[in-house]
Design a protein around this nucleic acid. Structure first.
Length: 416
RNA sequence: GCGGGUGUAGCUCAGUUGGUUAGAGCGCCAGAUUGUGAUUCUGGAAGUCGCCGGUUCAAUCCCGGUCACUCGCCCCA
């Protein structure tokens, strides 16, 4: 029989990794709450249209990366490849325009049919933050401050740099795009194969090309910043001033772009050099045009997503809290089982971690307790019970004391 | 989707220039120790050498395909 394998690009999360994930999500929830965001969990699948409409038919995600399937009713459903589309859909479904601004956070699995690599899975997990209904640059600043706080509390600020850019408003961006198309079309013959395709689908992406020949062309290409109108320039300046005020370091990267039409103004990525080709750890931007594409009322939006797997690769293990050291319950002889159960229950109710020892002679039980990193063992034997006492063994110094059942909980409170 | 690398025990890895019973360390189980852990000693289980096919008297080793992982590209978190 062939080895039972998980589906390509999926993983079981357990042990240290599970603990690291939990730590990251806990820090994230705490910070997001401090920033005034509320949790939202949207379904992990939606009608396919939710994603195909928002992401655009020509985008890579829609054209080759979606996990789509028909349900029994013949509806085309898709496992979510990203969080934003679902949140925007939820906003419209629930009529939340009545309660703007909406500040959301969420986390969970995402699905993309990609060729797996380290830091890139078919099922992966993201943290997500969105602010809907704030057209002011203050939202951009806050969302970036949230990101910076998260990365700093995860101990990653030294591993990561913030790259930021502005696409300008619609007017500025379209003017720049036209100029780019004109420029690159004139130099079509020197463009690489990938970039030729981008010229049609997503011309701004050429700016980000890794092809050497393209890069030479890009150096002389029209610059986005030359096409900012006054409002766009003022907006970007205000965002940068906010970052300066908060002492958040950044690098302006004019090649950092978003292709789809509903993006505008701020685009940013926190990047690390420690993860090979998958260097983007957290990324986002402003998407003021998205709500309308979805059929909702014109509503500004900005947000970001971070890959939990990628963060987990970077987080130092010593930051992740270990499991609490348990107290081992060691009954000796079958007559002591009931008392052992009761003591375990008492301990757990009082907030201790208690590990019940299930089988074996005493040496075996002690061995297991030691392996579980127990801080102490409660040894429950017939001799002791006859005198209404138990023996407490301290695993760190090897000392033993007899404690009366009455005093047990009191005594063990020292072991927290 | 495109190109390169890798695949031997639960884990980390040796090894066989193609030859009969494939090894180590760690881990696991048991015993020394039926009321006392970490150390020590002894023993044990565990592998269709990723899978399928080809070449060969003979394949874990060579060849082809396939699956998975991995590195880069595309794209992205």
């Amino acid at each position: 029989m062939a080895k039972l394998q998980p589906v390509r690009g999926t993983h079981d999360i357990m042990g240290d990794q599970a603990r690291t994930f939990q730590f990251i999500q806990g820090v994230f929830q705490d910070i997001a709450t401090r920033f005034g965001h509320q949790e939202i969990s949207t379904p992990i699948f939606e009608f396919t249209e939710v994603f195909s409409r928002t992401l655009g038919e020509t985008s890579d995600v829609v054209s080759k990366e979606m996990y789509s399937f028909e349900d029994r009713g013949g509806e085309s459903l898709t496992l979510r490849p990203e969080y934003t589309a679902g949140i925007v859909r939820a906003f419209i479904s629930n009529g939340l325009q009545q309660s703007l601004p909406c500040k959301f956070f969420g986390s969970g699995p995402m699905f993309r049919y990609e060729r797996p690599q380290k830091g890139r899975m078919r099922q992966f997990h993201q943290l997500d933050v969105e602010i809907l209904g704030v057209a002011e640059p203050q939202a951009d600043i806050e969302v970036l401050a949230l990101a910076a706080t998260l990365l700093s509390e995860l101990g990653l600020m030294d591993d990561v740099t913030l790259e930021i850019n502005s696409l300008g408003d619609t007017e500025s961006r379209l003017a720049n795009r036209d100029a780019l198309v004109t420029y690159f079309t004139a130099h079509k013959s020197s463009l690489g194969e990938d970039s030729l395709a981008r010229l049609k689908k997503n011309p701004m992406r050429i700016l980000d090309s890794k092809d050497e020949g393209d890069r030479a062309l890009v150096a002389d290409a029209p610059r986005i910043s030359d096409y900012y109108n006054q409002a766009s320039k003022a907006f970007f300046d205000e965002v940068l001033a906010g970052l300066d005020a908060l002492n958040i370091k950044y690098v302006i990267n004019e090649r950092l772009v978003r292709g789809l039409d509903y993006y505008s103004h701020t685009a940013f990525e926190f990047i690390t050099s420690k993860l090979g080709a998958q260097g983007t750890v957290l990324a986002g931007g402003r998407y003021d045009g998205l709500m309308e594409i979805m059929g909702g009322p014109p509503t500004a939006g900005i947000g970001w997503a971070a890959g939990i797997e990628r963060l987990a690769e970077l987080v130092s293990p010593d930051l992740v809290p270990g499991e609490p050291r348990p107290i081992a319950i060691v009954p000796v002889g079958s007559d002591c089982q009931e008392q052992a159960l009761k003591i375990a229950q008492q301990l757990r109710t009082a907030g201790h971690a208690a590990h019940m020892s299930y089988r074996g002679n005493m040496a075996k039980r002690m061995k297991r307790a030691n392996k579980a990193d127990a801080i102490a063992a409660v040894i429950i034997g017939e001799d002791e019970l006859a005198r209404a006492v138990v023996t407490i063994k301290n695993f760190d110094d090897g000392s033993q004391t007899e404690v009366s059942l009455d005093q047990l909980m009191n005594h063990l409170s020292h072991y927290r």
